[in-house]
């Protein structure tokens, strides 16, 4: 039964160390393998999380890859499984398969000015890459984060955003679509903030990592290209329905690519042909 035990379709048991609320419908949980093993992943990868008896969903890993003691996921309640995952308590056990998929090439892009552009919950899959750059800030020419959310109440990780912004070696721009009383920051789409953040920066030195709704990524890529960033220095993270995460179920196909295996992180020129088509 050894072969079966290593079956990639078989979830492993992970214990919920701690869980807390981020936004009204978003929670974060820290997990540890029940068997006591360490965890290892690359920024940008995802896991398949299983809520007992309910089902499984693909959720990106949002913690620090340098910390091998636990794995961190931030999940929005949108369906039966994500709602069940967001109702687990400290000490509960869930199933985990993974990590799967491609990574943000943060290590390969050493020496560059790294620009992160996140929309909404898209900040979660980028956070491990942000941690890596901040942990090794001296290795990079620059670090810019442009983050957009619907409203101030929808800003993910607000305390971390403040802490990142407070550093002298970062440029963190936060914008919202709709302001609320008390909001003194920017209002508008991320592309406007991006133009402002990169004013005076040589686009040829920029490597950009983009994650958010597809429409936001399309406009962001246009802006980056207008700023002189070349397409082979732009990466995006794609999302599709996934059932297996190992290239068998066919659900996540995006033209020639399986997003679970060939993605979710793609260099933009790999997907640029199809990302502009409807209903691919």
């Amino acid at each position: 039964m050894e072969a079966l035990a290593n079956d990639p379709m078989l979830p492993r048991r992970y214990r919920v160390l701690r869980t807390w609320s981020e936004l009204s419908d978003v929670r974060t949980m820290e997990l540890q393998p029940v068997d006591g093993s360490t965890v290892s992943f690359q920024p940008g990868q995802f896991n398949m999380l299983y809520a007992f008896g309910v089902g499984e969903v693909a959720i990106s890993i949002s913690g620090d890859a340098a910390d091998e003691s636990k794995i961190v996921h931030t999940t929005r309640s949108v369906g039966a499984v994500s709602k069940a995952l967001n109702s687990v308590a400290d000490g509960d056990v869930i199933g985990v398969r993974g990590p799967f998929g491609t990574a943000w090439p943060v290590v390969e892009e050493k020496g560059r000015h790294v620009v992160f552009v996140a929309g909404g919950l898209g900040l979660a899959p980028l956070r491990p890459a942000i941690y890596h750059v901040l942990n090794n800030r001296q290795d990079y020419a620059g670090m810019t984060l442009v983050y957009g959310a619907r409203s101030p109440q929808d800003l993910l990780y607000p305390y971390e955003l403040q802490a990142w912004k407070a550093r002298f070696d970062t440029n963190v721009q936060v914008t919202v679509d709709h302001a609320a009383p008390g909001w003194s920051g920017q209002v508008g789409v991320v592309t406007t903030s991006l133009d402002r953040a990169l004013a005076g920066v040589d686009g040829a030195e920029v490597s950009a990592f983009v994650c958010g709704p597809e429409i936001m990524m399309r406009f962001t890529v246009s802006s980056l290209k207008a700023l002189g960033v070349t397409e082979d220095r732009i990466w995006v993270s794609m999302e599709r329905n996934m059932k297996c995460a190992i290239g068998f179920c066919g659900h996540c196909q995006f033209g020639p690519d399986f997003i679970c295996r060939d993605g979710p992180v793609f260099r933009h020129d790999k997907v640029s042909r199809l990302i502009v088509k409807r209903e691919i």
């Binding site: 379709m9 008896g53 499984e56 059932k243 179920c249 066919g250 659900h251």
Partner: peptide, 30 residues
């Protein structure tokens, strides 16, 4: 292409995962 179905018995204490054929022609597929 395949789908997975997670089922439980009435007690809720026993769960199973089944893999079934799926089709890219169904609306749910994507």
């Amino acid at each position: 292409c395949s789908d997975v179905e997670d089922v439980t018995d009435l007690s809720g204490d026993h769960a199973e995962r089944w893999r079934t054929w799926d089709s890219c022609f169904s609306l749910d597929f994507s």
